[in-house]
Amino acid sequence: MALLVVRGLRVRYPGAQEDALRGVDLELAPGEFVCVLGPSGAGKSTLIRCINRLVEPASGQIIWDGHDAMRLKGAHLLAYRRQIGMIFQEFHLVDRLPVLANVLMGRFGYVSPWQAAIGRYGPQEVAWARQALARVGLAGYELRRARDLSGGQRQRVAIARALVQRPRLMLGDEPVSNLDPVTARAIMALLAEINRRDGLTMLINLHSVDLARAFATRVIGLSRGQVAFDGPPSRVDRSVLEQVYGTAG
């Protein structure tokens, strides 16, 4: 059964002349590594923000594990979001706080608000956070301030923060666009390794066609708010890129 089904998704931002998404259909099977390509403004960021309901669609369906995710509110919405990890182009860490504190924030969907408010995490929570840091290659960095780390290291912290959510889907909004090519490849390799070993489903927006070809099991091309291509990376050729980007990429 599909992990996620998206049907007829439409989004219009307030004051915009055109829809940001114009009827997107998408199905994700567990364990897929999907990369979303498309020019700036094609709706890549909007699409993944709709999936965890950071952006409210005007119409359409989002079915998560057989359940309607569009009607979720309050505590149910928070419980839905904690099953979906998310990483960002600018990492989105709290720079002043230590690495471990940033990773523990991934547990917010699970601990009670008053527990988090007084910074009380159980030993199990802290152990998971340390494990996640070791997993992304940052064992020993627990007490370093986030702002003292390099870009690649900060994205690793963000990945660890998403992993402690025990997610079933990882969303990535151009997670490697701010990194140099070597670091970008290393981060993509880390995501691919997590995908293979844990079977964690990935839906990652990318700028780089080469990285998508190298790591994805499936590529989706978005063009002006619509799916222009959906298929294996081996089928991404010149004519497909022309279709998605308008000109040869």
Binding site: F91, M105, F108, P113
Partner: peptide, 23 residues
């Protein structure tokens, strides 16, 4: 950024303020 990240992780409004805004 951190506000959005915590919201995406299922944090409540109070948690977002306490951990992403206050620091």
């Amino acid at each position: 950024g951190p506000l959005e990240a915590l919201e995406a992780a299922g944090a409540t409004r109070a948690q977002v303020i306490a951990y992403a805004v206050v620091p």
